[in-house]
Structure formats: structure tokens, C-alpha cells
Design a protein around this nucleic acid. Structure first.
Ligand SMILES: [Mn+2]
Ligand SMILES: [Mn+2]
Ligand SMILES: [Zn+2]
Ligand SMILES: [Zn+2]
Lengths: 132, 132
DNA sequence: CACCTTTTTAGAATCATTATAAAGTAGATC
DNA sequence: GATCTACTTTATAATGATTCTAAAAAGGTG
């Protein structure tokens, strides 16, 4: 009951819905990127039942807040999430509208020389747009 | 009649509305970042009259397509545009929800070591999120 | 001016996301 | 195990940015 503990330790009750979403998001070998609608589809397909969209939004946001998911800024149409929460970067294939991971080691160190008074850096993300 | 020519050369008729928007966007010393609503406010305030939101969207998208504006991916809430169309990067102040330019020279060369088969790189953008 | 095309516009439609509020559930207590 | 309470889920409505529509207005050309 790996996810039950994970949720409890985060102060989130391990409900049936949250456990199902955990299974889909984290019980796979590879991390992946998804939109809320894609997750909704995946739940219907893999679990069989449906989870209310409101619950899916709530859960994804709760997981994001706890650091189990990351949101990737791509465009203003819809939110993209990532189950890979390590520091890393992305390709974005403009034609397929798909994200591809770009590990830190594939980019090399990024040195931000400019400083902003009174602010500190929370994250540094590179987005590489791809075309044919 | 600098903007009349600019528009004509782009195959866009120099209408009153487009010229007014040009004036606001390009007739200033410094480039800046804006959302559609901020632009709408600015038009009302600086020009006095109002331009239909549909026209503002149309014009901004037309200018983006022509390369006179760039869209900056920040989050999925609303689109941010930039009158600075040179290659550059951004700070995003999470508290103030404001963009700050980060010139290429403030970041240093970014070497993308990973290649994706059949795709070529269109742009490389760094987003540095700031917190207090 | 007459004609044709592009553009503007108000308003409706769309779509992702968030809010609401009622019903259900988990976990604690007895 | 029944009871209680806070948390969660859910259907549904509301919101807000963006896009669509279709009719009116304006630009450009001869
Ligand atoms: Mn969010
Ligand atoms: Mn657009
Ligand atoms: Zn990723
Ligand atoms: Zn900028």
C-alpha cells in the first residue's frame, strides 16, 4: 500500500479516486506528460469507471502542491503536467503538440548572470520548440 | 507614415485600428510585455476610444504571425505577448505576475546536445521563475 | 463613384478551469 | 460498531479567456 502511505504522509486521505489516479500517474516505469483531458481519458480507459472532472482537477492540483507533479508552461490553451518532477527541460513539438524530456545533462549548466533585487531564483526551465 | 508602410508591406491594410495599436505597441522607446486585457485598457486610456476585443485579438495574432510580436509561454491562464521580438529570455516574477527581459548575454550560450530525429530547433527559451 | 475584398464589430459560442453546495466517505472517538 | 466531524467527491453552474459568426463598415482599385 505504497500510495496509501504516500497520501497519508502528505495529509491527503487515501480515497479510492486518489489511489486510482496515483496508480495511473505513478505506477508506471516511465514518467510522462499529460493534460487534464488526457488523464480523464486514461482513467476511463484503464480503470473503467469515471472520476468527476472536478476531482481530477482537485487531485492534480493537490499533487502539484505536494510536489508529486509539475506544471509545464507551454501555451495559454491548456495546462500540461509532468510526472517527472526532477529538474529538467523540454522539447515541444509544435506539430504533434507533444512534450519530450530534455535532461539537464543534455543542456549543460545555465548561468543566469543578471540579478533582480530582492528576488531569488526558484527555477530555470528551458523550452526548445521543434518544427519539421 | 512609418506604420502605414509597415502594414502595407506585410499585406495588412493600414486601418485606423491597426495604426492605433501600432502606435501603442511600437511607438515607444522601450519594448514591453502585455496581455490582451492590458492592451485593451491601454487603448482606452491612451487613445480614448475603444477597439473591439475581437479586433484586438485579430490584430495581435496578425502581428504575431508577421513576427512583430512574440508570445511568451508562462502559464495556462492567459497569453502574454512581447514587443521585443529579438531572441531573448525571461524572468517571471511569481508574486507580481510580471515578466522581465533577460538578454542572451545575461544567460550565455545554451547548447542543446540531444537531437530529435526529423525535427529541427525553432527556438530556445529560458524561463526563470522568481520568488521573494 | 462603383465594385470587391478585407476588416471591424457586437454578440454568441466554445472550452478550460474554478466555484458551489449537497451527498458521501475516512478516520477518530466512544 | 454506531456516532461524529472534517474532508472529499460530485454534478452542476459560473467564470473568463479566446474564437466564431455574420452583418455593417471601410480600404483599395479602376
Ligand atoms: Mn493551477
Ligand atoms: Mn493564438
Ligand atoms: Zn518532462
Ligand atoms: Zn521579453
Amino acid at each position: 500500500m505504497k500510495y496509501i502511505d504516500k497520501l497519508r504522509n502528505s495529509g491527503l486521505r487515501p480515497t479510492k479516486q486518489r489511489l486510482q489516479i496515483c496508480k495511473i500517474l505513478f505506477d508506471v516505469e516511465k514518467t510522462f506528460h499529460f493534460t487534464i483531458n488526457e488523464l480523464d481519458q486514461k482513467i476511463k480507459k484503464q480503470i473503467g469507471n469515471k472520476i468527476s472532472l472536478a476531482t481530477i482537477y482537485n487531485t492534480v492540483h493537490a499533487f502539484e502542491k505536494k510536489g508529486y507533479l509539475k506544471q509545464i508552461p507551454i501555451n495559454s490553451n491548456q495546462a500540461y503536467f509532468d510526472t517527472n518532477v526532477t529538474d529538467h527541460h523540454h522539447f515541444y513539438d509544435l506539430k504533434d503538440e507533444k512534450l519530450i524530456d530534455l535532461e539537464n545533462s543534455d543542456v549543460g549548466p545555465i548561468n543566469i548572470l543578471k540579478k533582480i533585487n530582492g528576488k531569488k531564483i526558484k527555477s530555470v526551465e528551458v523550452l526548445v520548440k521543434l518544427e519539421d
